[in-house]
Design a protein around this nucleic acid. Sequence first.
RNA 1: GCGCUUGUAGCUCAGCUGGAUAGAGCAACGGACUUCUAAUCCGUAGGCCGCAGGUUCGAGUCCUGCCAGGCGCGCCA
Length: 565
Amino acid sequence: MHLVGIAREIVVAAISEVLPLLSYEEIDNLLEIPPSMELGDYSFPCFTLAKQLRKSPVVIAKELAEKIPDNRLLEKVVVVHGFVNFYLKKGQLACDLIPKICHEGLRYGKSTEGAGKSIVIDFSSPNIAKPFSVAHLRSTVIGHSLARIWEHMGYKAERINHLGDWGTQFGKVIVAYKRWGEEDSLYPKGSIRHLLELYVRFHKEAEENPSLDDEARLWFKKLEDGDQEAYKLWAQFRQTSLESLKEVYELMGVTFDHYTGESFYNDLIPSAVLKLQPFIEVSEGAEIVPLGDDMPPFLVRKSDGATLYGTRDLTAAIYRYETFNFTKALYVVGGEQALHFKQVFAVLKKLGYDWAENCEHVPFGLMRFGDMKLSTRQGNVIFLEDVLDKSIELTKAIIEEKNPTLEDKEEVARAVGVGAVIFNDLRNNRIKDINFEWDELLNFQGDTGPYIQYTHARACSLLEKGGRLDEFNLDLLKEPEENALIISLERFPEVIKQAAKNNEPSTVARYLLNLARDFNKFYQAHRIVDAEEGLANARLMLVAAVKQVIAEGLFLLGIEAPEKM
RNA sequence: GCGCUUGUAGCUCAGCUGGAUAGAGCAACGGACUUCUAAUCCGUAGGCCGCAGGUUCGAGUCCUGCCAGGCGCGCCA
């Protein structure tokens, strides 16, 4: 069991000393945070012990509390009902914690749990025949954040962009391009939006002329069989799309270690299929692997012999394990593909790969627009680039209004505008569907990215005005607003751990909102730079620590933290 | 039909994996800028936690059954 956080560790240790019945880990699991500060900082419920010890929870709690030894960080231990409530000496905690945070900087809360281990994260993975729409945003920002969170846990992250650069959809685009390429086009030949026009037109025309679908399948088959013309077109489409994609990634500050898309695995597929051979059955001309009664069969090859994305996912999984020897493999892909991954993992297990247990689908909810699902096929898309641009424009306007003398306006507007979009996506549990609402997205007040960035900039401004800090006595911090911040800073490592455990960036996002709110309350209630000298220095140190943790938390979400805005 | 998933304030959502009096933001209304960045803060109002059972010291949280929405269910990804 790896414990994080100074104070929590001490509380658990103290209980452990007087309660040998439970292990360290059991105590840590039981320990909770009371609903309000008046009830203490940590709380240990004794109800579950009642049966085992055959005593009332209140009696157990009393006995336990009496035995807890004195500790330099413990203010008092109070029994309420069946709870043992621990009150920490905030001043002392501040003395221990704040210099530590300021000293460790971005390393505060970092764990060594994953030392020597690697985690493969498959995210973003857009379909490259299609434009990058807001629907792809989710996988991109969630995956990017998870990579940073797991790195903070000490893992080596392998960021993989499993580009959808192979498959029947390319047959469709080829057919459309050959028929209608450039004709009546609003966009120049070869541009990503031109490709979208073709894609949309294909589906429209295919409704009346289903033979187009057959033609598309034929072209994809030709592509797989190495047809020169098909390959050349495919390569051209791929290149255009990739260039356009990379612009968006750059704007958002998202990076990958590997751009190994589906086409990357073409050469590896035969050997993977060979491994599958003993399990394959032929059904209606297609090759399948039956998976029992509770799951539909897994399709290996279509009746025309072409592969499917499942085949490529399977091949990719094996390749990744052999290449990275991962401890964990995450697939940050929409929830609508849950069954697909269940099938892929089941097939891996059938092949005898124990590591299939370490593969995890990290699903997320749909992005909706009004009451309809965004559908590329119907041309019903919102381009991510447009969203980012709009958000950046709005940010610029706000800067002009509120802080017209700001330097680097362009750069700040980009950081804040993009941050707003990213935060909007990471704020809630990832499984929730998101209704795409311009108004909500472009509102920069309340629970938003700009709110947190603003708080950070505010803290930076105080530090700039406060000057250099040589001497400080953190024991002077006694106000409730100060205490709230100290205890909140102390909990940050737990928060990261929790976020990693659940693959849930929103845990960090929520924490930051609370921290920012607590900070703004503190800011509102007390003078800082012009408090009496000793107190001013102590408060400025607190501000420095808060600033540090906000910047670090934003980093974990993939959001920048400008010093001024 | 079967499987997965969601249901908490008018709206968008938290709720620490079963704990104490269910909390935020938005929207509404009322306040606070000659003072450290008002992208802020304070206050008011707003709740049969979808419904009904069950499990136990204790349920918004777990189990069962309904109801409602969403997503899937062999040659798309």
